[in-house]
Design a protein around this nucleic acid. Structure first.
Lengths: 123, 123
DNA sequence: ATAAACCCTGACATTAATGTGAGGGTCAAG
DNA sequence: CTTGACCCTCACATTAATGTCAGGGTTTAT
């Protein structure tokens, strides 16, 4: 299957498919004319990549264990767990940061509304 | 006060102070030799800018109400509330996204540990 | 008058995945 | 043999605040 078909089947842009290749995530064969030829298995592979990207992992991290998880259960791949844990820690940090900002914003919004209430009464 | 002193007093890098000026947040006077001259009030102004940046607002958004809030109470500045509310909505979205990813990661980590438990017993 | 410590502008780098366009081959159907 | 629909590579743009040079003036103290 050529790149256009793979793109249509997966919903991933041609640009992105080429980028994944450049990052070492896909290694399609080449026709004599230079066209990429993807095996049917690649479709599932691309969906797997998208899944990991959606978890916030970088292409570099994914490259580190993709070959393993495509052939085995995730639990078999030693690299996965530490990456998951690291990502989880990052996510937790981000959530806490955002929640602090959220509380701050809510306070400020409340203050503004309170002040306006007072000002309204004064006039 | 010159830029080095302002930077030292506020902890904000010289580079950033120049950037704030470029974004219209600061407008120091100039000496004949081209050196920027900041009024003592600027120190507080810079702290205010940092405060808003820490809330996740962009310099462009800050520029939209900074002059007002420096002269009045925040509640007086009409531009502030909608920006706060918009930012709050964005933050909420991000938090929800991150929480979904977090749950997903936790599931996956649990699955891996469970599977390994089983595999350990089998051998 | 020289050295150290300032200041200036301009410009490129950073991050990461993706969009977009130029310039140019290839192939299939008419 | 031409047209349209593919494909290729290369490369610049995107975001936003900040870091970091380079190349060059100024000031202050010695």
């Amino acid at each position: 299957m050529k790149i256009g078909e793979l793109s249509a089947r997966t919903g991933v842009s041609i640009r992105s498919l080429r980028y994944y290749e450049q990052q070492g995530l896909l290694t399609p064969a080449r026709h004599g004319n230079g066209y990429r030829e993807y095996s049917p298995l690649t479709e599932e592979q691309v969906r797997t990549i998208q899944l990991y990207l959606a978890l916030g992992l970088s292409t570099e991290q994914i490259a580190g264990f993709l070959q393993c998880v495509l052939k085995n259960k995730e639990a078999f791949c030693q690299e996965v767990l530490p990456i998951y844990r690291q990502k989880l820690a990052e996510i937790d940090d981000q959530i806490h940061l955002l929640q602090n900002i959220k509380l701050n914003l809510e306070d400020r919004i409340r203050s503004i509304l309170d002040e306006r209430q007072i000002d309204d009464k004064e006039e």
